[in-house]
């Protein structure tokens, strides 16, 4: 039950994009069509879960025992960067179609603050290994939900008549604001 609550809280109530403001750049960048949004959500979910697990182990068995906690930011970002590089090489070898579809977004996951954000929140909250996994999975599912919903909205907005000054990014932000308002309906679901 505790894990279920944590999952709901991470995915819906404290949604990474719409209430914590993490990972906004790809949220705006890849949400023009549903396909890229889906691909991006899966790539982020994978990198986020694996890097959270790896950094948890490094933090618990290397950084804390050797009193190197102040190196957290540097170590974590290096782990994430090398993991992204590794994932890129694996996908390129195993499925060239997916690699071509994700294109530039794959290396850019390194600078997606949702990943480093999730890793840092895990450390700050002192989660155990299972709790950490549940939280990270919940967060990445929430990230995917928000990204796919928003891409669907933007596909509609693209066909509507928008005032000149609002074309492009401004109307996307207003749309995101309304989506965030809708997500506020989840607050109070979990304490």
């Amino acid at each position: 039950m505790e894990y279920l609550l944590l999952f709901v809280s991470a995915s819906l109530v404290n949604n990474f994009i719409l209430s914590r403001f993490l990972g906004i750049c790809p949220f705006m960048g890849v949400s023009r069509t549903l396909d890229t949004a889906m691909g991006m959500s899966f790539a982020v979910a994978f990198v986020m879960t694996v890097s959270a697990a790896v950094t948890w182990v490094i933090n618990a068995f290397v950084l804390v025992p050797f009193e190197l906690v102040y190196l957290q930011t540097i170590v974590f970002i290096l782990v994430i960067a090398s993991l992204v590089q590794f994932v890129e090489m694996v996908i390129e070898k195993s499925s060239p179609e997916l690699y071509a579809a994700l294109g530039i977004f794959l290396p850019l996951i390194t600078t997606n603050c949702a990943i480093l954000g999730a890793v840092l929140i895990n450390v700050q909250q002192d989660f155990g290994f299972i709790k950490m996994l549940v939280f990270t999975l919940g967060s990445s599912v929430g990230y995917g939900i928000a990204l796919v919903l928003f891409a669907g909205l933007r596909e509609r907005v693209a066909f509507s008549n928008v005032p000149t000054s609002f074309k492009g990014a401004p109307v996307a932000f207003v749309t995101a604001g309304i989506l965030a308002l809708a997500f506020m309906g989840f607050s109070g679901l979990v304490k």
Binding site: S165, F166, A169, P170, V171, F173, V174, G177, I178, M184
Partner: peptide
């Protein structure tokens, strides 16, 4: 609240 951040930025960008 979070939605206001998106709304305010959208309108400021339009401006």
């Amino acid at each position: 609240l979070p939605p206001g951040a998106f709304l305010a930025l959208g309108f400021l960008m339009a401006g």
